[in-house]
Simulated assay, not measured.
Amino acid sequence: MLNKVHHITFVVESIDDMAGYIERNFSLAPMSRDEFEDRGFKSILYRIGETYVDFFEPLREDTPMARQLQATGPGVMHVAWGVDGIDDVFADLKAKGNEMRGDAPSASPFGYRNLNIDTASSHGILFQLAEGEVSH
């Protein structure tokens, strides 16, 4: 079922500071910079091998990433695992008794589809599964 690490999302205080750090130390420039006002964050996105790495900066205090940043400081928000056939995976996980966030896989603002297993079903760990490539 799981076939790769699709992406890793970090929450940071400043994507500009992080982009400068990554460029200075690793000679990488982001493949995209985005602002998702409706979702309450700005992002920078990198591709490293097969894996996407993104950094989110909260724009509002009422977002999950802002609450995480306040509670624990900068760090990993989640790791998303790659899958094929995400609709079937969703149905299979639900049939196995997992509580899912939402009624079906959803579209990310980056163009791929994803699903999230509610942490009440997964021993407190957020499992996000994703299918598809970033459409930037």
Score class of each variant (00 low, 15 high):
2 L>R: 12
2 L>G: 06
3 N>D: 06
4 K>G: 13
5 V>H: 02
5 V>R: 03
6 H>K: 01
8 I>F: 06
9 T>Q: 12
10 F>C: 08
11 V>A: 07
12 V>Y: 01
13 E>H: 01
16 D>Y: 01
22 I>A: 08
22 I>T: 04
24 R>H: 15
24 R>G: 12
24 R>F: 11
27 S>D: 12
27 S>T: 08
28 L>A: 06
31 M>T: 08
32 S>N: 10
33 R>C: 10
33 R>T: 14
34 D>V: 12
35 E>C: 09
36 F>W: 11
38 D>M: 01
38 D>S: 01
38 D>G: 02
38 D>T: 08
39 R>F: 15
44 I>K: 03
44 I>Q: 03
46 Y>R: 05
48 I>L: 14
52 Y>T: 03
53 V>P: 05
53 V>T: 10
54 D>W: 02
57 E>C: 03
59 L>K: 01
60 R>Y: 12
66 A>V: 11
68 Q>D: 01
73 G>M: 13
74 P>L: 00
81 W>Y: 15
84 D>C: 08
86 I>E: 03
88 D>H: 12
88 D>V: 09
90 F>S: 02
90 F>T: 00
93 L>K: 07
93 L>C: 12
93 L>Y: 13
94 K>D: 10
94 K>C: 08
94 K>A: 14
95 A>V: 01
98 N>Y: 14
99 E>I: 14
99 E>V: 14
101 R>Q: 10
106 S>L: 09
107 A>V: 06
108 S>K: 10
110 F>W: 15
111 G>M: 04
112 Y>Q: 04
113 R>V: 04
115 L>A: 13
122 S>R: 00
126 L>W: 04
127 F>V: 15
127 F>D: 08
128 Q>S: 13
130 A>E: 05
130 A>I: 11
131 E>W: 10
131 E>A: 05
132 G>Y: 05
135 S>W: 05
